[in-house]
């Protein structure tokens, strides 16, 4: 390195949250089972993403696509990247962006047929069998967390037909969804729903389960003992576009 250029110190990962060194996935699964024992209206599912631990591997994006069998044009959890500084003092920040599951979601009141709604546990869901595909909710979401199923398949460009893995049904909302022309979820708006079908079976969302940097925490925000709440103590935190008053259920640790 040429002389005279001062390098920034390389950041270090924050220490593990649990002093017992128990893997946080085990802890969160235990929290999940405790929350599921409560009535649904007493739970409030939320997510905390530690931006200092996120390595930008996009493993969560891939796990989400795999879990929900997402077609072209549909993404539930992209990871945004931002480069700052100039060489050699350059840093890159990563920001995974699931649906914010807002307390006051702007996407819900715009739906003309109430196909999208807020569940008692805080998750914003879509009834695929009711959605007319007007895409008004997509325009209303300030986080671009909604995308549209255009009826395309990855296999179209390769072999002119869906590939075998695209014929595996999605299990979103606990139902079996085969993507066939003219039927839902083709022609619907789609979005992250914290892997509801996994939660119902006591499993963490796919993005949380697969995050090898252990940057994603998930649990019941109403449970003070849950890791998702403990991890927020003593750390600076933000919500995306908090000025809009949507009050997201996704928090970022800075």
């Amino acid at each position: 390195m040429s002389a005279g250029i001062k390098l920034s110190p390389i950041p270090t990962l924050p220490p593990p949250v649990d002093p017992s060194q128990e893997d946080i996935t085990i802890v969160m699964r235990r929290d999940l089972r405790r929350a599921l024992a409560k009535p649904i209206e007493q739970r409030h599912w939320g997510m905390v993403i530690d931006l200092q631990r996120c390595t930008g591997c996009q493993g969560c994006t891939i796990a989400c696509i795999n879990e929900n069998k997402l077609p072209p044009g549909v993404v539930y959890r992209p990871v945004l990247e931002n480069v700052s500084g100039t060489f050699p003092n350059v840093s890159k920040q990563f920001l995974p962006r699931p649906c914010m599951q807002c307390e006051d979601p702007p996407c819900v009141p715009v739906c003309p047929v109430a196909a999208t709604y807020k569940r008692p546990d805080g998750i914003v869901a879509i009834d695929y069998d009711v959605c007319i595909g007007c895409r008004y909710c997509i325009t209303a979401c300030p986080y671009s967390a909604r995308t549209f199923d255009w009826g395309e398949f990855y296999g179209d460009a390769v072999c002119g037909a869906p590939t075998a893995y695209e014929e595996v049904p999605s299990l979103e909302y606990g139902k079996v969804w085969m993507r066939e022309p003219g039927t839902s979820p083709i022609g619907n708006t789609r979005k992250c729903q914290f892997c509801l079908e996994r939660l119902d079976h006591g499993e963490l969302p796919a993005c949380t389960e697969t995050c090898f940097g252990r940057a994603t925490y998930f649990g019941d925000l109403n449970d003070p003992e849950a890791l998702v709440n403990r991890v927020r103590q003593d750390r600076q935190m933000m919500q995306l576009k908090s000025d809009l008053g949507t009050n997201p259920s996704v928090f970022y640790l800075l």
Binding site: V113, G133, Y136, I186, G187
Partner: peptide, 19 residues
């Protein structure tokens, strides 16, 4: 323009007047 033309009449039998 809509994804499910056959469901357009849902606006009449299950409207959400916030929208």
């Amino acid at each position: 323009d809509v994804g499910h033309m056959s469901r357009l009449f849902e606006i009449y039998y299950r409207p959400q007047f916030h929208s």
